[in-house]
C-alpha cells in the first residue's frame, strides 16, 4: 500500500524513535509522584522477577520432596536443600512456586487484558463515533453482558467451554471486562467526537476508519493507559481467583490462586504456604494501583 506509506510520511515528520522517546519522557514524569514511584518499584520488582526467573538458582517448582512436607520458613531439607520460604503440602519449594507463579499470572493477565481491550475498545470506538444503530446495538449487548455478575459469567463461560484452560480464561475475561472497557472508550469518544478537528477531518473527506484510529484514538490514550494499569490489576486478581476456584489455569502449573486453595485444605499446617501468595498478589496489585494513581496525578498536572 504505497498510499498508506505516503500517509504515514505526511503525518509524522518526526521519526518513530523520537516519538517513543516522547512517550517515555511522559511516563518518566512519574518520578514526581511519590506514590507513583512506590508503585513503579513494586511493579518493576515482579516484572523483573518474572522475566529472569528461568535464570535464577531456584528449585523446580513442580518437584515434590516427600521428605520435606509443609516446612516453615528458612528450613533445611534432609538432602541439604535450603527452602527459603519453606515448602507446601506436597513438599514443593514455596519460593520457586511463588516466582514462577507470578510469571504465569502476569503473562496470562496481560494477554487477556489486551484481548479484552482490543474487543471492548473496538466496540466502544465504533459505537461512540458512528452512533445510531451501531451504538444502540452494541450498548444493548454490553448491557446484557454487564447484567451477569462477573463470577457467574466466569463460571458459565468456563464450564460451558469445557473447563479450565488458558484460552478459556481469556474468553472469560474478555466476556466479563470488554463491556466495561466498551463503556469507558465509548464515553471518552463521545466526549471528543464533536470537536472541531474531527469535523475538519470529516470535511476533508477522511474515511471513518481513519478518523476513528488516527484522529480519535490517540487523543484518549491518556485515560486509557491509566485504566489499563488498573485493569491489569483486576485481571491479575481474576486469573489468581479463577485458579483458586479451580476453574482457571490448570494445575500443576504454579499459580498464586491454586497455591492458596491447595494450602487452605490443611488448616494451620497450610498457613505459611497460604500467606506468601496472598502477599504476592496484594503487592503486585497495589503496585499497579499506585502506578496508575501516579500516572493520573502526573497527567493532570499538564
Amino acid at each position: 500500500m504505497s498510499d498508506q506509506q505516503t500517509e504515514k510520511n505526511a503525518q509524522s515528520n518526526e521519526p518513530q524513535a523520537s516519538r517513543l522517546l516522547v512517550l517515555w519522557r511522559k511516563i518518566a514524569l512519574i518520578r514526581e509522584s511519590r506514590v507513583g514511584m512506590l508503585g513503579t518499584f513494586l511493579v518493576a520488582f515482579w516484572l523483573v522477577l518474572s522475566v529472569i526467573v528461568p535464570a535464577l538458582p531456584l528449585f523446580d517448582p513442580l518437584q515434590q520432596y516427600p521428605c520435606c512436607i509443609s516446612l516453615p520458613i528458612a528450613s533445611h531439607g534432609e538432602d541439604g536443600g535450603f527452602f527459603v520460604l519453606g515448602t507446601d503440602d506436597r513438599g514443593r519449594d514455596i519460593l520457586a512456586r511463588l516466582v514462577w507463579g507470578g510469571r504465569l499470572v502476569l503473562f496470562w493477565a496481560t494477554l487477556s487484558m489486551l484481548v479484552a481491550y482490543v474487543v471492548g475498545g473496538a466496540m466502544g470506538l465504533v459505537a461512540g463515533y458512528l452512533r445510531g444503530w451501531w451504538d444502540v446495538g452494541l450498548s444493548f449487548l454490553a448491557n446484557v453482558l454487564l447484567s451477569f455478575p462477573v463470577m457467574v459469567m466466569y463460571l458459565l463461560v468456563i464450564t460451558y467451554l469445557g473447563g479450565a484452560s488458558g484460552v478459556n480464561v481469556i474468553f472469560a475475561v474478555t466476556f466479563a471486562t470488554a463491556p466495561a472497557i466498551f463503556r469507558i472508550v465509548r464515553g471518552l469518544i463521545l466526549d471528543i467526537r464533536a470537536r472541531d478537528y474531527v469535523f475538519a477531518a470529516q470535511v476533508r473527506g477522511e474515511h471513518p476508519l481513519r478518523i476513528m484510529l488516527v484522529e480519535l484514538l490517540p487523543n484518549v490514550r491518556g485515560p486509557l493507559i491509566v485504566d489499563m494499569c488498573l485493569r491489569l490489576g483486576y485481571t491479575t486478581i481474576t486469573i489468581a481467583l479463577l485458579g483458586y476456584l479451580g476453574i482457571g489455569l490448570p494445575p500443576p502449573a504454579p499459580n498464586w490462586g491454586t497455591m492458596i486453595a491447595d494450602a487452605q485444605q490443611f488448616g494451620h499446617l497450610g498457613v505459611n504456604a497460604m500467606l506468601w501468595p496472598a502477599l504476592a498478589i496484594s503487592t503486585l496489585v497495589l503496585g499497579l494501583n499506585l502506578f496508575a494513581d501516579g500516572l493520573r496525578e502526573v497527567s493532570l498536572r499538564d
Binding site: L241, L275, P277, A278
Partner: peptide, 14 residues
C-alpha cells in the same frame, strides 16, 4: 488504595 489492592481470597487468607 491499600485495601482495594488486597483481593478477597488474599485478605480472607490474611
Amino acid at each position: 488504595v491499600l485495601t482495594t489492592s488486597v483481593p478477597e481470597f488474599a485478605s480472607a487468607t490474611l
